[in-house]
Simulated scan of single mutants.
Amino acid sequence: MSTDSIAELQARLESLESKVAFQEVTIDQLNDEITNMNLQFAVVTRQVKLLAEKLKENKGSVVASMSEETPPPHY
């Protein structure tokens, strides 16, 4: 092998190593982002379940019962 050929192979190898290192950093960043999104999804899922439970408790009515209503100010 000539020195030009060895130098070319070495340059290609360094380029590939650089790309792999960049990809590893990118994969780590994506993994962190997915982990954060999964945590946020769990929180939102729990909130939706709580809201659904509250709606079931209230039977879906947004109007308070007569016993909970305060009389109008003119009484």
Rank of each mutant, 00 (worst) to 15 (best):
E69T: 03
D32P: 00
L51H: 04
N38W: 03
N38T: 09
A42I: 01
M66D: 15
L13I: 11
K49Y: 04
S18E: 13
V62W: 09
E14F: 04
F41V: 06
D4E: 13
Q10Y: 02
K56F: 06
A42E: 05
E8P: 00
L55P: 01
S5I: 11
H74G: 02
N31A: 14
G60D: 00
A21C: 02
T3I: 10
L39F: 08
Q10E: 11
E8L: 14
N38Q: 15
L50S: 12
K59D: 05
A7V: 07
Q23Y: 08
S2K: 05
M37V: 06
A11R: 14
E14H: 02
N38S: 10
Y75D: 00
V63Y: 04
P73Y: 02
L55E: 09
L9W: 03
M66P: 15
F41P: 00
D32F: 00
L50M: 13
G60C: 05
I6L: 09
A21I: 06
E14Y: 02
M1L: 13
F22N: 11
Q40K: 09
L55M: 14
E17V: 03
E33I: 02
M66E: 15
E8N: 11
A52M: 08
S61K: 15
V63N: 07
S65M: 07
Q23D: 10
K54C: 05
H74N: 10
L50V: 09
P73D: 03
N36V: 04
T3C: 03
E53W: 08
